[in-house]
C-alpha cells in the first residue's frame, strides 16, 4: 500500500543544509493504522507531504497504491492523489468561500452528481454536521472544521488517508472524535497514517513510529482490536 525506501529529503536554507528525512524506510499494508510521533520540526509534515506526492524526496523511492509517485509526471501524481489519497491537515485548510457541504464535495475528483450529494449529506449526518451544511467555515468551531476536513477526505473513499497533526488545534473531546472517525475508516478497510507531536494517536494505531531529526524508528507493534 505504502512503501518508502531509503527516502532522504534535504532542505537548503540560509543557515545551511537541513536534513528533513534521513534514510526513511517502511511499509504500510492495506487496512493498517499507523501513527508517527515527533516533535515540532522533526520532519513529520515533510514525511506526509512526500508520501502524498507533493514533496519530491532528494533520494529514495516512494510507492503508494502501486504507483511509483516520483516516477510519474506532476499531472499523473495529481490524478493518483485525487483518486486514492485523502489529506487531513492541522490547519483544516477548508475553502473559505464554500459551504460545509461544498467543502466536503470539493474532495471528489470528478463531477458531483446527486448520488455524491446524498453520500456527502449522509457523511455530514454521521459527523454531526448536518445542521452546519450550509454554513461557511468561518462560522464553525475548530472541531467542526476538522470534522468537515475529515469528511472531505473520506467522501471519495481513498485507499489512504494521510493526516498531519489532525488534532493539533482541537480540545480533547474533539480530538477523540477525530481519532474515532479515522479508526472507523480503518475498520472499513482504509489505510490511515497519522503524524502527531504527542502520543494521542498511538492507542488507535496498529503500529507507532517515532520521528526524530528526520530518522524514523518503530516504537511498538501491537494488534489493535477492530
Amino acid at each position: 500500500m505504502i512503501t518508502c525506501e531509503q527516502v532522504n529529503r534535504t532542505f537548503h536554507g540560509p543557515g545551511g543544509e537541513v536534513r528533513g528525512l534521513c534514510d526513511v524506510s517502511f511499509t504500510v499494508t492495506r487496512g493498517e493504522f499507523v501513527a508517527v510521533q515527533g516533535a515540532s520540526g522533526s520532519g513529520k509534515s515533510t514525511l506526509l507531504l512526500t508520501l502524498g506526492g507533493m514533496l519530491r524526496p532528494s533520494s529514495g523511492r516512494v510507492a503508494v497504491n502501486g504507483h511509483e509517485l516520483y516516477g510519474l509526471s506532476a499531472a499523473e501524481r495529481g490524478r493518483v492523489r485525487a483518486a486514492g489519497i485523502g489529506f487531513v491537515f492541522q490547519l483544516f485548510h477548508l475553502v473559505p468561500y464554500l459551504t460545509v457541504l461544498d467543502n466536503v464535495l470539493a474532495g471528489l475528483p470528478g463531477s458531483v452528481d446527486s448520488a455524491a450529494r446524498a453520500r456527502a449529506a449522509a457523511l455530514l449526518d454521521e459527523f454531526g454536521l448536518s445542521h452546519r451544511a450550509a454554513h461557511k467555515p468561518a462560522t464553525l468551531s475548530a472541531g467542526e472544521r476538522q470534522r468537515t476536513a475529515l469528511a472531505r477526505a473520506i467522501l471519495k473513499q481513498p485507499a489512504v488517508i494521510l493526516a498531519d497533526e489532525p488534532t493539533g488545534n482541537l480540545d480533547p473531546e474533539n480530538a477523540a472524535s477525530v481519532f474515532r472517525h479515522l479508526a472507523a475508516y480503518r475498520r472499513q478497510g482504509g489505510t490511515v497514517m497519522v503524524v502527531t507531536h504527542g502520543p494521542d494517536a498511538a492507542p488507535h494505531a496498529d503500529r507507532t513510529f517515532r520521528l526524530e531529526q528526520g530518522r524514523l524508528t518503530e516504537l511498538q507493534t501491537q494488534p489493535v482490536s477492530r
Binding site: A82, F87, H93, V95
Partner: peptide, 14 residues
C-alpha cells in the same frame, strides 16, 4: 496560497 495548496492536495491540475 493555502487554498491553492489545498487544490493541489486534492489532485487538481495546473
Amino acid at each position: 496560497r493555502a487554498e491553492i495548496g489545498l487544490w493541489r492536495a486534492l489532485g487538481r491540475g495546473s
